[in-house]
Design a protein around this nucleic acid. Sequence first.
DNA 1: CCTCGCACCTACGAAATCCGTGAGTATCGG
DNA 2: CCGATACTCACGGATTTCGTAGGTGCGAGG
Lengths: 171, 171
Amino acid sequence: MHSEVVASRSADPKGPSSKHGGSPSLDAVSLAIIEQLQEDGRRPYAAIGKAVGLSEAAVRQRVQKLLDQGVMQIVAVTDPLTVGFRRQAMVGINAEGDLDPVADALTAMPECEYVVMTAGSFDLMVEVVCEDDDHLLDVINKRIRALPGVRSTESFVYLKLKKQTYMWGTR
Amino acid sequence: MHSEVVASRSADPKGPSSKHGGSPSLDAVSLAIIEQLQEDGRRPYAAIGKAVGLSEAAVRQRVQKLLDQGVMQIVAVTDPLTVGFRRQAMVGINAEGDLDPVADALTAMPECEYVVMTAGSFDLMVEVVCEDDDHLLDVINKRIRALPGVRSTESFVYLKLKKQTYMWGTR
DNA sequence: CCTCGCACCTACGAAATCCGTGAGTATCGG
DNA sequence: CCGATACTCACGGATTTCGTAGGTGCGAGG
């Protein structure tokens, strides 16, 4: 039972290839480990090992590497609005020229929790979390719009968060 | 050292106030606990207790309650695009009538990881995670647009995730 | 073909943590 | 005054974490 993953010993994790460069190239076992931790970020290594067919130590080392590489993070997540007195919004941005500098500048702002480059009528989308209306206004109108390259923005203030999960693995 | 939170014994957690209504109304200590777990979801209870000025057992009970109440969840988060072969997009939705049934229907879809009601030119925004283009097309055009009440949608396919944090507490 | 080096795994013991539990205290609300 | 709630302190066994030593497979280079 436990639906072992049986990855056979030969499915080497770190890819002999290291294909196309960039991606850390995760194997099936690491994927399975991540799935386990998406269900419960505090699940013990031994339990994960049993589920994916690895020893406790091996799981521990893999997890540590995934964390070090920044592939995954184990954290507490909440709904900021529930947690209290805060304003949250999604901001769509249009910019000209190279988008990377703009994205990097947004990333540097602590109020921006989520920055993504998109295709469609926005070039970038950013989720901002603020203390109150004044703070939100300041961030959007004074700081984001002031960035060089930013042509225009459109804001969507959050009224209610209905769902927030991270279990793409389990379905 | 450790920047204790010194909440004094009298700051009762379950709020005698229960201000502005609905919210579970978290006190400063629970907030501090959440902040600790936003930095590291696996931090031991004793360490958290030392940081927030509570005993190990008290922290354990608080964390359990926060998890049970659904105020917080401790999970592994990743960038689905990095983890592999997947298409991701933000979808803005306009609908007519009561939005709750629509939001609930979206919440029920496993591909929707994030559902939020907004003010602005969209009524709802949804983040979808899909296997591939076909899957994405199916979800957006066949399932979301088919929901009763949905008037129109606009999609923003993710090209690159630049930032993803959950540390609103620490700044 | 052989050997070095690397990445990954298993094995194991010691230290730390988790977790259930029970007694005693303080505060709040009825 | 009483009940409910929440916290502290304390304990002990089970479990987990963590460092580390030892073994193995595989590619690179001689």
